[in-house]
Amino acid sequence: MKSSLISKVFGYILLISISIVIIFPVFYTLSTALKTNADSQTFPPKLFNFDVTSENLRYLATNEDFYAAVRVSFLVAIFTTLLVVFAATPLAYSLSRMNYPGKKLIVLLVTLIQVTPAIVLLVPLFALVTKFGLYDKIITQVLILSALILPFATWILVAFVKSIPYELEEAAFVDGASRLQVIWHIIRPLLAPGIMTVAIFTLIGAWNEFLVPVIMSESNAKPVTVLITIFITEKNIDYGLLAAACSFLFLPVLLFTIFAKRFIVGGLLAGSVKG
């Protein structure tokens, strides 16, 4: 079939060109991180023929501000993930399997955050946070981010809970198991991939977050995403340092893409095209 060969060639050309558009900024970031300051500021730009140096990486590795920011980024990402999993898993189960007063309010609030730009909440929250002395604290970012990520996590888990046949639970009830036993022994293991998906999305989301920390932190709780903006607002831009810090931000994401692709694609589809 000649036409299928042509369309195959066309298909590969398309996929390769879109891949170049996607990979180029990443390649540019990683390569600039390895350039000397002189090489990164020449024109025409040196894409391949530059001298590889580790001076930017070494500078960052010994920089106290960067260390502090990395620590904040890690702590915020990890604790937000724990809190989201802790709050969203039982919430998703209760929303899909139980009926109780207040359920309507929860659904309303969850849907509301999902459609409302976060800045709407952050403007009054900033005033509240400063009033209660919570400004520039890691815990503040964890709580706010958890609430902002909660809707997405909850809908993914609701889709996963609904995919577990209720008959499975009923059979266990008939055998005399209590609700908690059923949840622990039947639901929890079946829900594990869903929880994993939520955890990965939350980790990446919290790691990448900029708006919440740029508003809620000043010096003590400044993550890497906020720190990198200082490389460019100062008079001369330090291309190499900026690129090195950006590469550092990309690193966990690149690892996740390699090792957790299945969960990411699955979660995306569960969160959007569930029944």
Partner: peptide, 12 residues
């Protein structure tokens, strides 16, 4: 089950 989520939603 819904309390942790509800508290987060109310405060944030």
């Amino acid at each position: 089950f819904s309390l942790p989520g509800l508290l987060l939603l109310i405060s944030v």
